[in-house]
Amino acid sequence: MHIPKDLVAASATPIVLSILQKEDSYGYAIIRKVQDISDNQMAWTDGMLYPVLHRLESAGFIDSYWKESLNGRRRKYYHITEAGIDECEILISQWDIVHRALHRLLHGKADD
């Protein structure tokens, strides 16, 4: 299913921050991870991830360092900061509210 651009843009930040909260990672791995967890439903254009990462970095939610991989390729790894963890928590609780509201509409209030 195609996910509209606005929704992708809005969800990108909490998704990226949550992935980085598990472990430091680099652009390519983050993209693959997103495809994995969404069963290939959320197809981001690869290139669009980098502006998102840069924005998060300049906002101070993540920082970055270069590291060489086993095959000798240099990769830029991203690491979540304290501010990023806080931000992630806020964003996820916001998404929870939206999600709960939709869920209640569909299934009635009873299951709460």
């Binding site: 254009t45 690869d46 290139g47 669009m48 502006p51 840069h54 924005r55 300049s58």
Partner: peptide, 19 residues
Amino acid sequence: RRMGDIEVIHEEFSKISTE
């Protein structure tokens, strides 16, 4: 192809770096 349209990426990049 997966990388996407360079023009669009460029646009996004230039938005961040305005400062």
